[in-house]
Every structure is written in C-alpha cells, then in structure tokens.
Design a protein around this nucleic acid. Structure first.
Lengths: 226, 226
DNA sequence: CTCGGTTTGTTCTCCCGTTCACAAACTCCT
DNA sequence: AGGAGTTTGTGAACGGGAGAACAAACCGAG
C-alpha cells in the first residue's frame, strides 16, 4: 500500500467522473423522494442515463459504498457523493452582470436547493443599482472585493456581455475567487490554479445545427464545381 | 484513394472537433472585425484558447483551406466553417417554457446573430399566453405541432421545469424535431436519431465546488473516525 | 452449514482525443 | 533561379475514458 492518509480513500477522481457525480446525486435525490431505500447499479444508472458498468466504476473512485448482492443504500450513497462534491455545506456565490441571463440565474431555484447561496448581484451599470432581483438588491461592481472578502466567496458567475467578461474575471481572480462559471461568449484567460467552466448557449445550438444538417445532408449535395 | 464523391472532402468529423468549430468561428469573426485579413494557426489557436496543433488537425478534417508559409485567409476560413456547421442559412427554433430562463433565451441576441431565428415561444400556462417577449407573443404549447410543421423547425429548446421536460421532448420528437437543447435538470430519453444536448447550471457549479474543495482540501482533513 | 442466485468492484481491452514532431509547400530576399 | 525562413497538414506516440467480462462477496433457503 502506498503512503496515504486514512481520510482520502479516493484520490484524483477522473474529470469525467466528477462531471457525472452531480447527475448521480440528482438521481439519488429523486429515488429518495420516491421512498426508495435501496437501489442497484442498474437502476441508478438507468435513472442517470448512463451505463451501469460506468456508474460502478465511477462510484468505486469514491470508495466501496455498496453491498454485493444487495446494491446501494440510497441515503448513504447520496450523502457520500454530496460530501465528495462538497455540497453538504453551502457555497457563497456572486453573480456579475444582471441582464436577462443574470436575472434568470438569480431566480434559479436549483442553485439554492443544491448547496449554493447567491450572496450578491453586481452590475457595472449604475441605473441597475438598487433594483431588487430575487430578494437581493443589485450592487455596484466595485463592491466585488469587499463582498468576496466578507463572505469568503470562492465561486463567481459571469453573465456580462463578452467585452466586459475578461475584466470581470481579472477582478474576480484578484479578489480571491478561484472558480468561475462563464456565460459570456468569449475565451477567458486566467492564471494557473483558477478553474473556468464556460456555458455558451449559441455554441450548443450550433453543434445541434451541424448534426441536423448532417442528417439532412443526403438531400442537398453539390456545393463545389465538378 | 477510397470511393468518395467530390463534394464531401471531410466525412465523419470527430465530435470533439465539431464542438470546437463554433469557437473557431467566433474567433474568426473577431479577427474579421479587427480587419485582419490573414492569420496563422498559432494566432487563431490563441484566440480560441486551444493548442495550435489541435486547431490544425481540426481544420484538416474540413479540408485544406490554409496556405503553407502564410496561414489562413480569415474570411475564407470563416465561410468554410460556417458552411460546415450549417449556419450560413437561418435555423428556425422554438423555445418551450417561458419562465425566467425562457425569457433570457428569447432575448439572447447571440442566437439571431449566429444563424438562429426564434419562430415561437410556447408555454403550457394559459396565464402567459399573449404576453410579448422579445417581440414574439407567447403561444399555447398545443400549437407546437402546427408551428413545427409550418416553419420546418428541426431544433427545439426546453426551458421548462424538470417534471414537464420529458413530455415536452416526446411531443417535440413526435412533431418532427430532431435536435433538442435541454435546460431542464432531468435526463431525457429520446428515440434513436434524435440529438439531445443538455445544459445544467447547477451541475456546472457543483463541478466547480468539487475543485474548490479539492484545492482547499489540505486545510481541513479528518472526517471519518480513526 | 452449504448452495444457488444476485450484485458489486475491478481488470482488461478497445477506441477516441490530444500532443509531438516532421515532411511538404509556400514566400521572400538575394 | 536558388536558398533561407515560415507555416500548414499529417503520421505516430501517448494518455484517458468507456464498455465487456469476471471474480469476490453477500443474502436467503433448506
């Protein structure tokens, strides 16, 4: 056995697995609400929309939380996954850019119910300041540093126009934010150690469009000269 | 040379490449707006936030559109990628579920500017019908089939609560929609041949939370009994 | 206590995606 | 015209993820 402390039974979880853990968590929550006490990897995998072998392998990175011949205890596994992700406690989050999308994000109930608490809404436009969205009033963007320090914010959400996004990211990083969820359609450059995940709505549609065109592609053919 | 028609110089583009083409397209648009006529793979890769070797390999699936020793013609490459993705023409899109997120999506200018046209906003809640969002009035969900048929809609966006999403997806598929962008936090099951892409806001945050916890993980240690 | 049935945890293999490294090809200067 | 310098396109190596298959472990019946 290599040198390991007793607490970290599963080091270095693959990124692909990390991305699926929240899906499993949601599926388990659904099962728990349906009063299901136990489930097999087959059932859980079906609920999560994945292969059962992959599910078992994913879970094995966390530890050995199932019982052979029986399956998984829904509540127990749910807690273990939540603990591994880190959503047993609440994470403070700031949202910058309270336009249409910022509004929607601020009102999104899925954040609060899944371990995230929006502690501030910031916008650079003074005409928005004081507006109350989802029970929180919009504050000047310049309050960023103070708010991050006060609440210990580690996660920032950028919902600004593309041109502003890099500046916002820089300020966030300087203020101590280490993870950014970026909705602005631009590539952010951040220092080593800072995580950025991007959600780009039009890119998703373009990917779909490609596949639609590919499916219909047999119909129209010529484009270049023969 | 294997049997190939003259038109399809690049069959079966890898999925990972398809997902990056819109990023390249956006970077090229930015360069074009900056009056840049030509760019090297190194420059374009930097603008897109990827490795230059990967960029070149990605582009090579489309064909040989660069000039060795020179680089790529911005306008020409932009057109070729747009054509490959299929965004030279406009795609009609329907959005179902005009809540907070649906509002934001309907108002999102990035759709229209990138080859997508929202032809209808649908909601099952009668109290919303007639409301005008982004210049389009909200119609009953039951109009779905008629609208899909009339406009030849191939792409549908689901922005409903989770419980309604599967029903909406089923109706969409039955009406002829072949690609779905799903914002509802649930796993959709669709028949073979239908593409689904999901965007899940809270999952993205949970992935970030995991990494934050991992970074801070050295601080707090014990959790299980020794 | 033993045996059959069930389900997990894990190993092995295949495949896709990424990166490296280099030959081919183009431009420009002399 | 020829050679030096650039940059593309691609073959090959490398790493990680996904699925199949199986051994280990558990339950319950007799």
């Amino acid at each position: 056995m290599t040198a390991r402390t007793s607490t970290d039974a599963g080091r270095d979880i693959p990124e692909a697995t990390v991305a699926r853990l929240p899906v499993y968590l949601r599926a388990l929550t659904g099962l728990a609400e349906a009063r299901t006490a136990t489930c097999s990897s087959e059932e859980l995998a079906a609920a999560a929309g994945v292969n059962s072998a992959m599910l078992r392998k994913d879970l094995s990175y966390l530890g050995s939380y199932g019982t052979r011949g029986v399956g998984y205890d829904v509540e127990y596994l749910r807690y273990q996954i939540a603990r591994e992700i880190g959503v047993t406690q609440d994470w403070p989050v700031v949202i910058v850019g309270i336009g249409n999308l910022g509004h929607a994000l601020a009102n999104y109930s899925g954040f609060r119910s899944r371990g995230f608490r929006v502690v501030a809404l910031l916008d650079a436009d003074p005409s928005r300041h004081g507006e109350v969205v989802a029970g929180i009033d919009v504050q000047p963007f310049d309050d960023l540093e103070e708010i991050v320090a006060e609440h210990g914010v580690a996660i920032g959400v950028i919902a600004t126009p593309a041109v502003a996004a890099q500046d916002v990211a820089d300020r966030m990083v300087a203020a101590g934010v280490s993870s950014i969820l970026n909705f602005a359609p631009t590539v952010l450059s951040v220092p080593e150690g800072v995580d950025v995940r991007k959600v780009d709505l039009s890119i998703e549609l373009q990917i779909l469009a490609y596949h639609v065109q590919r499916k219909n592609g047999i119909v129209e053919a010529e484009e270049e000269p023969a």
